[in-house]
């Protein structure tokens, strides 16, 4: 399962979305997430779906590849759906079995909740799949630049993030390797109750942490050997400048956001008519 997490995995392709300035993509993702919580009623979600669909289509990342990231949240999704489905009181009871019952409002909230979560993951996956982690952290560094005046170590945070992202696949592979090695030595990660399972993780986590520290030590040395000494006096290989397409993208995104708010107003106005 851990191999399925696509977050932080760049998918190389030549698309408009790939070429956009990372700041645009960061801001867009934020706006998209906010818009999901603003969204109300079928119309709102329809607009969000169209927007997301269009972006995914333009990104040229295969849809199947994108949905891989969803597998990691299946459990969370199920729990959310089940809780919403059974615990929300509504006007009509659609189905009843003992103390379990599903109401119209419960069903509606459960579906919307699920859609919201899925879109959340898909939306952020589009960003991480089309932007190299380095671009992403460059974008973040520049967006958060003003915070430097408040002595926030923006460059250091960005560097740490990009290194963390680079090591995710390596550490996953390592986890896999250690897991197999421990299974070969008779370790059991599958059976037992929750506490036993948690205890079984110890022989996995201890070697993983030791190796992670060793890697960190090596990497720090390699970075110093290549003259890394913080953000001061550092130039950029890929400095960020807004192009015309970035400005256009901003216009589209803000347009989308305004539309979402407009939809929200109109639906609350005609709330009775919609649902």
């Amino acid at each position: 399962m851990i191999r399925d997490i696509t977050l932080g995995q760049y998918y190389p392709a030549k698309s408009v979305i790939h070429r956009l300035d990372p700041r645009v993509k960061l801001v867009t993702t934020m706006i998209f997430i906010v818009s999901l919580f603003v969204a109300k009623g079928i119309m709102g979600y329809l607009v969000a779906t169209l927007f997301l669909g269009a972006v995914i289509r333009m990104s040229k990342v295969p849809f199947g590849y994108m949905t891989k990231g969803l597998r990691a949240i299946v459990m969370l999704l199920m729990i959310t759906v089940i809780f919403n489905l059974f615990l929300i009181d509504g006007d009509f009871v659609l189905w009843r079995f003992g103390f379990l019952r599903i109401t119209d409002k419960g069903l509606k909230t459960a579906v919307f909740m699920a859609v919201r979560l899925i879109y959340l993951i898909l939306g952020s996956s589009v960003m991480t799949l089309t932007t190299t982690p380095n671009d992403l952290t460059d974008g973040l560094e520049k967006l958060l630049g003003p915070l430097k005046r408040l002595h926030v170590p923006v460059h250091e945070i960005a560097m740490m993030m990009s290194i963390a992202l680079r090591f995710i696949p390596i550490l996953l592979e390592e986890t896999d390797k250690i897991m197999k090695a421990q299974i070969a030595r008779g370790a059991d990660f599958e059976t037992g109750n929750l506490i036993q399972k948690a205890k079984a993780m110890v022989p996995l986590l201890v070697p993983l942490f030791i190796s992670a520290f060793r890697r960190a030590n090596d990497l720090a040395m390699a970075m110093e050997a290549r003259c890394y000494h913080g953000g001061n006096g550092r130039t950029k290989m890929k400095p960020l400048h807004y192009q015309r397409r970035d400005r256009a993208a901003y216009a589209v995104v803000w347009g989308y956001f305004v539309l979402m708010i407009a939809v929200k107003w109109s639906t609350s106005y005609y709330a009775v008519m919609w649902l």
Binding site: Y10, T132, P133, N134, S162, I163, L165, R166, I170, R215, D218, L219, A222, M223, R226, C227, Y228, H229, G233, R234, T235, K236, M237, K238
Partner: peptide, 22 residues
Amino acid sequence: DNQIIGTVVEEDVGFGPENLGV
């Protein structure tokens, strides 16, 4: 694995010159 900093080959090669302020 423990000495490549960049996530794309060319970005990694550019890491040293970036630090030098080229």
